[in-house]
Design a protein around this nucleic acid. Structure first.
Length: 475
DNA sequence: ATGTCC
């Protein structure tokens, strides 16, 4: 982008003062290279969000920002609860897509002789791929019960341990969920998809802790050097997708009736206090619960796989955090505490130390923030900062961020070659789709290390540990 | 992201 449009506030913080239809400023995070490479669509999408009714504070673009449907991926927009809007495009198609990381009590040496066997078993037991379902079938009322209860429903079914729930954003359940507002078709698509990974950038990785940046925080999070961990990156499968697909046109159609002039046809939204806004909120909350239940169900399958191969393992949930959500949260605007609807699309919640929503063990150091890298590259565990409440509505980046379209990646890379290449670096890939592997090639993404450095320099999260993949199950 | 175009 044209850097002259921005005022550099600090090495990785750049302010665009509001102009034209913008109601608030925009804040871009990243080093100079990242800012220079932001494409025009992403920037204009940030300006569109800053032009919506009831937007407050500043709209943020994370270092991994790129263009999305209407609303940028890596974007944060907060709206006043009286006059603001809720946007289906501001949450994204994969509602509550997120990452959870489990500790195992194992060291990387424990896996040397059985990594391939573990990879085969995980690939066999955990359904992956587009449109692929699993053995869990939700019949009759079970689907609505899942949509209402989230991960806590799953634990009630014997899927996982009660202590998992305290380690999930919102204790594993979204209170705004209203299954009645979820389109029937969305429910039908989900009946056989519980406990499945999906495709695209979703994965299940067994990783080890390669580096620790903050010993005290790492100890509080329960991780040490060479520890084996498991990370699960997935979302609400066909259900979330169908909710977005159905609500987007409804919002676009209804906008003029609410007196909203949409800055772009794709950035559909409805007043949070309208019937349609509330309906979407109920459906989205159900979508969040679906994703939380899904990651819980997959966790259960992972535990079974470890019991079969490495029975000494003890899989405990470190944390589960989503990066496609809209939550009601309290922030100070012009010195006054206000309830806001915070959209985070491709942005991770990162609560700072002392935040009332954090479990006791994380109060001192801030929320564990899990950042999934692209396939074959590093992932990170960060911690939330106090300052991020003021700077970014307690949000930070969510991953590496694409630099190449899926189509372009398919042309440039061959899936089987990528698999072999990663194999030479000691990373086992199991997949049902070589096309998917090509689309997810490491070079189709920005350098995650650079994204993390910029995130830390911007002051919105701090490095705790770097994870390196041992094996990866790809959809 | 997605029964990868109802």
């Amino acid at each position: 982008m044209n850097i002259k449009l921005l005022k550099q506030e600090s090495p990785c913080r750049w302010r665009m003062e509001k102009y034209g239809p913008m109601r608030v400023d925009a804040l871009f995070f990243g080093n100079k290279d990242i800012i220079l490479e932001l494409d025009d669509t992403t920037v204009s999408q940030v300006r569109d969000v800053a032009s919506l009714p009831g937007v407050v504070g500043q709209v943020c673009a994370m270092p991994d920002a790129h263009s999305g449907y209407g609303f940028p991926i890596g974007g944060v927009g907060a709206f006043d609860e009286k006059h603001g809007v809720i946007s289906a495009g501001g949450v994204g198609f994969d509602i509550s897509c997120g990452v959870r990381t489990l500790t195992t009590g194992l060291k990387k040496q424990d896996l040397i002789t059985c990594d391939a066997k573990l990879a085969d078993l995980l690939f066999k037991r955990i359904p992956s791929g587009a449109g692929v379902g699993g053995d869990i079938i939700l019949e009759g009322d079970q689907l609505d019960e899942m949509l209402l209860g989230g991960a806590s429903w799953a634990v009630g079914q014997g899927v996982g341990k009660p202590e998992d729930l305290g380690r999930i954003e919102g204790n594993g359940r979204n209170n705004f969920a209203d299954p009645c507002k979820v389109p029937l078709k969305a429910k039908q698509r989900m009946r056989n998809q519980m406990g499945s990974l999906g495709s695209g950038n979703h994965y299940l990785e067994v990783q080890y802790v390669e580096e620790i940046y903050d010993k005290a925080k790492a100890a509080a999070f329960g991780i040490g050097i060479d520890d084996v961990v498991v990370s699960i990156h997935c979302g609400s499968r066909g259900l979330g997708h169908q909710i977005a697909k159905d609500y987007l046109p409804m919002m676009a159609k209804a906008a003029p009736g609410f007196g909203i002039k949409l800055p772009h046809k794709d950035i559909a939204c409805a007043p949070i206090n309208s019937e349609l806004g509330r309906d979407y909120l109920g459906a989205m909350g159900a979508g969040i619960n679906c994703a939380l239940a899904n990651r819980q169900a997959i966790t259960h399958l992972v535990r079974e796989c470890f019991t079969d191969t490495l029975p000494q393992a003890d899989l405990r949930l470190l944390y589960d955090v989503s990066h496609n959500t809209c939550h009601r949260e309290e922030f100070k605007i012009n010195g006054k505490k206000k309830n806001l609807w915070v959209h985070r699309k491709g942005a991770t919640r990162a609560l700072g130390p002392g935040h009332p929503e954090l479990p006791r063990e994380f109060k001192k150091h801030g929320q564990p923030v899990i950042i999934g890298g692209s396939m074959g590259t590093a992932s990170y565990i960060l911690s939330g900062t106090k300052d991020s409440a003021e700077i970014s509505f307690s949000s930070c980046c969510h991953g590496a961020g694409r630099v190449m379209s899926r189509a372009k990646a398919r042309k440039n890379f061959k899936g089987n070659k990528i698999q072999k290449e990663l194999g030479r670096h000691g990373i086992i890939i199991r997949t049902g789709s070589f096309k998917g592997i090509a689309e997810e090639a490491p070079l189709a993404y920005k350098d995650v290390d650079m994204i993390i450095e910029s995130t830390q320099t911007a002051g919105i999260a701090e490095k705790v540990a770097r994870l390196r993949p041992i094996l990866c199950i790809k959809g």
